[in-house]
């Protein structure tokens, strides 16, 4: 696939795109209205609220919590997933549809 499809991407178009990217990236932040559009296209960056979300740490302590041997095989998820829309939701458009509209 690569040998064939590569031909459709010319060196000139790569240069054009790289040149445009460099221009945008070099522009002062205040003047980046073009980049503001890109930002919309590529979704707003979302940071985790908790900057300590760093995975587990070790401890040299024990715990007073007791291991509860629940039977996972009989359990049904009942957290926030119950709020998610069903596949047949009449609201129709998902995030991707919305994204494509913006990009167009």
């Amino acid at each position: 696939m690569n040998a064939i499809t590569s031909k459709s991407i010319t060196a000139a178009s790569l240069a054009l795109a790289l040149g445009a990217a460099l221009t945008v990236a070099a522009a002062p932040a205040a003047a980046q209205d073009k980049m503001a559009d890109k930002e919309k296209c590529y979704g707003v960056a979302m940071k985790g609220k908790n900057d300590c979300r760093a995975g587990a740490g070790t401890t040299c302590a024990g715990t007073s919590k007791v291991d509860y041997q629940g039977n996972a095989w009989n359990l049904v998820p009942k957290g926030s997933c119950v709020k998610t829309a069903s596949p047949t939701s009449p609201t129709g458009f998902g995030q991707l549809a919305e994204f494509k509209e913006k990009k167009a």
């Binding site: 696939m1 178009s13 795109a17 945008v24």
Partner: peptide, 23 residues
């Protein structure tokens, strides 16, 4: 990389993707 992306989506925005990496 550009060819693979374009094959997936003819409207692939190469300048935008490179700009994102630079930014």
């Amino acid at each position: 990389a550009a060819a693979r992306a374009t094959a997936l989506d003819g409207g692939f925005d190469l300048a935008g993707a490179l700009g994102l990496l630079l930014q």
